[in-house]
Design a protein around this nucleic acid. Structure first.
Length: 864
RNA sequence: GCCCGGAUGGUGGAAUUGGUAGACACACGGGACUUAAAAUCCCGAGGACCGAAAGGUUCGUGCCGGUUCGAGUCCGGCUCCGGGCACCA
């Protein structure tokens, strides 16, 4: 055995062995329980970053642990390979997106392999391969057949910089999620997936996702945004039609003193026709349509509106009420028209005050009496209905139902449920994505490509200029086709699919990655699905996770998937952060370019001004606080990188990078190496029996510690994912074993130290697989470590012979005593009272009572 | 504004059900080895106070209050930090 720990050699050796033995390849095996662990697959940007290292280290611990527990573990990896950066590279560096992507995948794959991650690489998929994206197209056609995919003209979010449409979720505070330029509205024909058909089920099934973080469930719930209420028809005065509004507060309908329409409402201009308001209304509409496109959502502006000149009748109060157009009413939600109840809705209240509209209180709270004149804000709480005709005196909660029933009887409307969730716009005016399998024929109209003609491949004769719309339009080869129905010349759809489509079902493709006849095999999916543990960043809490849930349900209804939910358990890991350095003038600085020193204070290399040590921030290039995983591995090896990221913080919390912490992890591994090589002579040979009882007390204590560590590490890994405390416990065991191995003669119980060392190596294997495999082999075991089962603790060994009892007086610790485990409570109390320090505190006072917590503590409560 | 998290030594973090707060590690200090340094090994350590020392007292988990024999943990009211949503009728 080498005197020095040389991680690179060891790691290359074991990676080769695992690859040659196909150690992590799996097939369905009905005799074993299955376990599917999956980490969110990466976008092949070129290099892995610390976020990947952390994500995949966590997953690998779970995978290796579950294998040792006897599970048939599916642990695949692939590439989310379509997307904008590839196209940007094509524009900037004249390299084809496909070439760029393939090169990145190759490089990143070697990086991932150097991490020693236990993937079944035989199942690798890349979403940009025709073998993969043909099934995107196939699914699209199934959706199209069922009305789940449809086309509509709509105002969409348009990023002028990326020249592409963005989903609502991709617009963050009015800015493009990717390039942060201001998003504008544009009218385009778009393909949509009817996710709203599943809104109710997507909401309801959140309840069965008990293995998901509450935070993510809440975000999804809010995103779906279910509102229960009613639609009410307000008949127009002097016209035949009615205006339909949606409200969640039918109980306040008697307080509706005007109506507000969205600027885009179809009746907005129409209502003002022939009135004195007509031209003013027209101007108002033009102005706010513009404003909307300039940056909706940027901030909450002043409420503005205009009277249309028209009136309708409140069907309940029979009062004629004016109809306004208001800038804050959204066309996309509800019906684009709201009944305004200023007394009980803050927005309506502000609007009414501004335009001098009537305010009518119809709900009175319990504790005070509202008067219209005295209102300073809307009252939105519960109460009793007043000024509401036959409904007076009802609790408003009850009133909601009673009003809704009443209007259904009268034909004035009906109960209604609305969702904030919109249909998913999947069209992208881009090249590097899945072509939408649709053809436009002058004779037949919109025609689906025949399934046997799939895949519709991306053409190669496309120029990348970065200007104009979709590059696919430039390809004659691509756009000119024959109509699948009539055979006439036709034009191919040039939109490609949102890349979220690719990632919405990749976990299903992994169960049959090379199947040519279907996206995946139903039986294989039945065996492996659902994913037992999914691990990734919380940034996908809404988008990806909601779309994947939708796809799973839709594919189930098509007859392919057999599960309702794709991911049984979800772990959202925290970000990887590091401290930053910043100069007032020259902004972020690399730690390596700083002048000065930690003690004297850092200076800017350019202007020599003192540099402020900035906050701890998420690692990013722009903040110059990244650590390159490859450099880390070159310097310390993958085992150190893994150990540090797993030890520094629990997975769901943010991890603060620390170079000294990395050193510490490396030192620990070096100490282990030295320990084994030093004591190798007594540690080699067949696995020792962990259950051999030893008469010497110190040995029994060590044995107890070994078994306690096995239990602790098992509990920490399994379900709790507290890897940091699991590792801490192993470190404690190691400290105890080292002490025992060097200690006085009584502790030199060789078979026990040997058994403890073997247990320690096994326990550490999921975290530090290369080094542990090497150490295990050096101890001349017959089987490789990854074939060894997880150690079982022996409950009998956990039993304490002696207990440390804490003695409190009035809740404060005043003494400790060691007693034999079989001593009775009464005797312990007597001993406690007899303790010299304790009795000094009692000091003649009367003992009121004694609390005894079995095996732990005695609390003597004194009078007074 | 609304909804979720979070706050514990010099630092990252432990304390799983209300029962010794600070495991484990980093950084730090002292010592050993060395001509010296690095590496390694050993020892120490929450703050304040008392004591020559052994040891002891007392305060202490963001702030204020409560429940309890006992609160980092439970309850009420705040402060600050992070995240999500944001005119959704």
């Amino acid at each position: 055995m080498d005197a020095r720990y040389q991680p690179i050699q060891i790691e290359e050796k074991w990676q080769r062995i695992w690859e040659n033995n196909k150690s992590f390849q799996v097939v369905e095996d009905p005799r074993k329980p299955k376990y599917y662990v999956l980490e969110m697959f990466p976008y092949p940007s070129g290099r892995i970053h610390m976020g990947h290292v952390r994500n995949y280290s966590i997953g690998d611990v779970v995978a290796r642990y579950k294998r040792m527990r006897g599970y048939n573990v599916l642990h695949p990896m692939g590439w989310d390979a379509f997307g904008l950066p590839a196209e940007n590279a094509a524009i900037e560096r004249r390299i084809h997106p496909e070439k760029w992507t393939q090169e990145n995948i190759l490089y990143m794959k070697t990086q991932l392999k150097r991490m020693g991650l236990s993937y079944d690489w035989a199942r690798e998929v890349a979403t940009c391969q025709p073998e993969y994206y043909r099934w995107n197209q196939w699914i699209f056609l199934q959706f199209y057949k069922r009305g789940l995919a449809y086309k509509k003209s709509s105002s969409v979010n348009w990023c002028p910089s990326c020249e592409t449409v963005l989903a609502n979720e991709q617009v963050i505070e009015g800015l493009c999620w990717r390039c942060e330029s201001a998003v504008v509205q544009k009218e385009l024909d778009q393909w949509f997936f009817r996710i709203t058909r599943y809104a109710e089920e997507l909401l309801r099934d959140l309840e069965q996702l008990t293995g998901w973080p509450e935070k993510v469930l809440t975000m999804q719930r809010n995103w779906i945004g279910k509102s229960i209420g009613a639609e009410i028809l307000f008949p127009l005065i002097n016209r035949q039609e009615s205006l339909r509004v949606f409200t969640t507060r039918p109980d306040t309908v008697f307080g509706a003193t005007f109506l507000s329409l969205a600027v885009e409402h179809s009746m907005a201009l129409e209502l003002s026709r022939g009135t004195s308001q007509e031209s003013a209304v027209g101007q108002f509409i033009d102005r706010f349509r513009q404003q909307n496109s300039a940056g909706r959502g940027a901030e909450e502006g002043e409420k503005e509106g205009i009277f249309t000149g028209a009136y309708c009748q409140n069907p309940f109060s029979q009062v004629p009420i004016p109809i306004y157009i208001a800038n804050f009413v959204l066309m996309e939600y509800g019906t684009g028209a709201v009944m305004a109840v200023p007394a009980h809705d803050q927005r309506d209240f502000e609007f009414a005050r501004k335009y001098g509209l009537p305010i009518q209180v119809v709900i009175q709270p319990e504790d005070r009496i509202l008067k219209t004149e005295e209102l300073s804000e809307a009252y939105v709480g519960e109460g009793t209905m007043v000024n509401s005709g036959a409904f007076n005196g009802l609790r408003n909660i009850e009133g909601k139902d009673r009003i809704a029933e009443h209007l259904e009887r009268e034909g004035w409307g009906q109960k209604s449920v609305r969702y904030r969730l919109r249909d998913w716009g999947v069209s992208r005016q881009r090249y590097w994505g899945t072509p939408i399998p649709i053809v436009y024929c002058n004779r037949c109209g919109v025609v689906a490509v025949l399934e046997e003609q799939l895949p519709v491949r991306l053409p190669t004769d496309v120029p990348f200029t970065g200007r104009g719309g979709s590059p696919l339009r430039e390809s004659k080869l691509f756009t000119q086709v024959q109509c699948p129905q009539c055979g006439d010349d036709a034009r191919r759809e040039t939109d490609t699919m949102d890349t979220f489509v690719d990632s919405s079902w990749y976990f299903l493709r992994f169960v049959s990655p090379s199947l040519m006849t279907a996206p995946f095999d139903v039986q294989q999916a039945k065996y492996w699905m659902a994913v037992d543990q999914y691990i990734g960043g919380v940034e996908h809490a809404v988008l990806h996770l909601l779309y994947a849930r939708f796809f799973t349900k839709a594919l189930r209804d098509i007859g392919l998937a057999r599960v309702d939910e794709p991911f049984t358990n979800l772990l959202t890991q925290g970000m990887v952060c590091k401290e930053t350095y910043r100069c007032v003038e020259h902004n972020w600085l690399l730690p390596s370019e700083l002048a000065g020193s930690e003690k004297e204070g850092w200076q800017c290399p350019q202007c020599a001004r003192p540099v402020e040590k900035g906050r701890v921030e998420k690692m990013s290039k722009s903040k110059k606080n990244i650590i390159d995983p490859e450099e880390l591995i070159n310097a310390y090896g993958a085992d150190t990188a893994r150990l540090f990221t797993l030890f520094a913080a629990p997975p769901e919390k943010d991890l603060e990078w620390s170079d000294q912490g990395v050193e510490g992890a490396y030192r620990f591994l070096t100490r282990l190496w030295r320990f084994i090589s030093q004591h190798r002579a007594t540690l080699v040979g067949a696995i020792a029996d962990l259950k051999q009882l030893n008469g010497v007390r110190e040995a029994r204590n060590l044995q107890r510690m070994i078994h306690r560590t096995i239990k602790k590490v098992t509990d920490d890994i399994d379900g709790r994912f507290h890897f940091n405390t699991a590792i801490a416990a192993i470190m404690e065991l190691f400290n105890a074993l080292s002490a025992a191995a060097q200690g006085p003669t009584r502790l030199q119980d060789r078979p026990l130290i040997k058994a403890g060392t073997e247990a320690m190596i096994t326990l550490l294997y999921p975290f530090v697989p290369h080094l542990m495999s090497e150490l295990w082999e050096s101890l001349e075991k017959t089987q490789r470590l990854e074939q060894i089962p997880w150690p079982e603790y022996w409950p009998e060994a956990l039993e304490e012979e002696e207990l440390l009892i804490v003695v409190q007086v009035n809740g404060k610790v005043r003494g400790k005593m060691t007693v034999s485990a079989d001593v009775q409570q009464s005797q312990i109390e007597v001993n406690a009272l007899a303790d010299a320090r304790v009795s000094a505190f009692i000091d003649g006072k009367k003992v009121q009572r004694i609390i005894y917590v079995p095996r732990r503590l005695v609390n003597i409560v004194l009078e007074g």
